[in-house]
């Protein structure tokens, strides 16, 4: 077992674990945000750079710090490694910069976006973003397209995390879409006149951190925070059948996979469960599901969020008053 210290908290992890997963073992505020890394998808990570951390001590054997900030999702820990995440102003500044980069070409159409309320980019910008943009140039624009019978692609909102590409590769079996072109004109696209159409294709919607891929059977039906997430299951031949049913009264508005506290699905579900079974009678409703993420759907969560900072003037004030 390797001992690694992240923000002054020491944890023991298996050799080969990445810094991000070690931080997830600790949990709480020291977990770096991840927009592209997905523990269930092989090869994901390293691209969005929001999880950059500072390695203040490489290992017990070689205590030199690493020269640059490293992507915590793809850097394995060493024994005796000392990592700084929210205790390093350098890391917070870099993260702020990354959020700014991610947002310059993002349309910021949250008021009409189905992902609003459960969007990783929203959470990230709320925590780390600037109040105003410095970008006055034109944003790049793409047309909205259907890339499958049930899936809509808003390329404008995409942050090119490649998660959907890996999902199609590893979960859906057959991949007909990928990234075309390069630089800031790169886009997710299908092969000419091909549809994403397999039994597990709907999972690309769940893994998408932003509102680029949305469920056509749910679009514009309701805001997610008006719905009640309920654990539900059914006997499914293709998948585990364990889902979250999003209900309004007795109606099921949409079905998604169950997501854990890091926003990753616990088990991938099939398209039949996701798109076809929208009757309450199709499901056994277990009870309400607690959503742990930093989003509006986990009621009033934003009130509890502390903006990351090293100085805590608020606490000092309350002490004085006492």
């Amino acid at each position: 077992m390797f001992k690694v210290t992240i923000d002054n908290i020491t944890v023991e992890v298996e050799p080969g674990t990445t810094i991000l997963n070690a931080a997830r073992k600790i949990g709480g505020e020291v977990v770096p945000p991840a927009m592209c890394y997905y523990s269930k998808l092989k090869g994901s990570g390293g691209k969005c750079r929001t999880c950059l951390v500072k390695v203040a001590q490489g290992s017990a054997a070689d205590p030199r710090p690493m020269p640059k900030l490293v992507a915590s999702c793809s850097t394995p820990v060493q024994d005796g490694m000392v990592v700084q995440n929210i205790t390093s102003p350098e890391v917070l500044a870099a993260r702020k910069a990354i959020v700014e980069f991610l947002l310059i070409n993002h349309p910021l159409d949250c008021p009409v976006c189905d992902q609003a309320g459960e969007c990783d980019l929203q959470d990230l910008s709320f925590k780390h973003g600037l109040e105003a943009t410095r970008y006055i140039e034109e944003k790049r624009e793409f047309d909205v397209v259907d890339i499958g019978e049930k899936i809509k692609l808003h390329m404008n909102r995409c942050i090119l995390c490649y998660r959907c590409v890996y999902t199609a590769d590893q979960i859906a079996g057959k991949r007909v879409h990928g990234v075309m072109y390069r630089g800031d004109t790169a886009e997710i696209s299908t092969l000419i006149s091909q549809n994403i159409n397999s039994d597990f294709s709907g999972n690309v919607i769940d893994v998408c951190p932003v509102g680029a891929l949305t469920d056509r059977t749910f679009r514009f039906k309701s805001r997610v925070w008006f719905l009640n997430p309920m654990n539900a299951h059914r006997d499914c031949l293709k998948c585990s059948g364990k889902v979250t049913a999003w209900m309004f009264g007795k109606e099921i508005y949409r079905v998604t996979a169950r997501k854990d506290q890091f926003g990753e699905v616990e088990e991938f579900i099939c398209d039949e469960c996701r798109f076809e079974k929208k009757q309450t009678s199709d499901w056994v409703i277990e009870g309400p599901r607690h959503i742990e993420r930093n989003s509006v759907i986990s009621a009033n969560h934003y009130e509890k969020i502390k903006k990351p900072s090293i100085i805590k003037p608020l606490e000092e004030k309350t002490e004085k008053q006492e």
Binding site: K47, C48, R49, L102, I104, Y135, R140, L160, G183, D184
Partner: peptide, 25 residues
Amino acid sequence: YHHESCGQCSPCREGTGWMEKVLHR
């Protein structure tokens, strides 16, 4: 560099285009 950025990681993908646009202005 804007033209040749591969578009994989966000700082380079977005930053090179931004710098080019500002310099062009």
